[in-house]
Amino acid sequence: MEGKEEDVKLGANKFSERQPIGTSAQTDKDYKEPPPAPLYEPGELTSWSFYRAGIAEFMATFLFLYITILTVMGVSRSPSKCNTVGIQGIAWAFGGMIFALVYCTAGISGGHINPAVTFGLFLARKLSLTRALFYIIMQCLGAICGAGVVKGFEGSTYVQKLGGANFVASGYTKGSGLGAEIVGTFVLVYTVFSATDAKRNARDSHVPILAPLPIGFAVFLVHLATIPITGTGINPARSLGAAIIYNRQHAWDDHWIFWVGPFIGAALAAIYHQIIIRAIPFKARA
Rank of each mutant, 00 (worst) to 15 (best):
R125Y: 07
K126I: 03
A100E: 06
C145T: 14
L188T: 11
L123T: 04
N201G: 13
K199E: 13
V150G: 01
D197V: 11
K199C: 09
I144Q: 01
I137M: 15
I108K: 04
C140T: 04
F186H: 04
T105Y: 05
L141Q: 03
T130L: 12
A147D: 06
H112L: 07
T105V: 08
V117S: 01
V192P: 00
L133W: 09
G171P: 11
A195R: 10
C145L: 15
K126Y: 08
K126S: 03
T185Q: 08
L188Q: 07
L129K: 00
I136K: 02
C104P: 01
F153V: 11
N114F: 09
T173W: 13
V150D: 02
G177I: 12
G111E: 09
N114Y: 07
R125S: 09
A147T: 04
T191P: 09
V183A: 08
V192R: 00
T196A: 05
S176K: 09
V187T: 08
A100M: 13
F134W: 09
F167I: 06
R200A: 15
T173L: 13
T191I: 12
A180Q: 07
I137R: 03
N114M: 06
K126M: 06
A180H: 10
V149A: 05
S109V: 15
L123W: 05
K126T: 02
S109G: 11
V168Q: 06
V183Y: 12
F122S: 00
L127G: 02
Y103E: 07
K151L: 11
F153T: 08
T173Q: 07
L141S: 05
Y190G: 12
K199M: 10
E181T: 13
T130I: 07
R131H: 12
S176C: 09
T118P: 02
T157M: 13
A180N: 05
F119Y: 14
G163I: 12
V192A: 02
A100S: 13
S170W: 15
G111H: 11
C104M: 14
N166K: 11
Y158K: 01
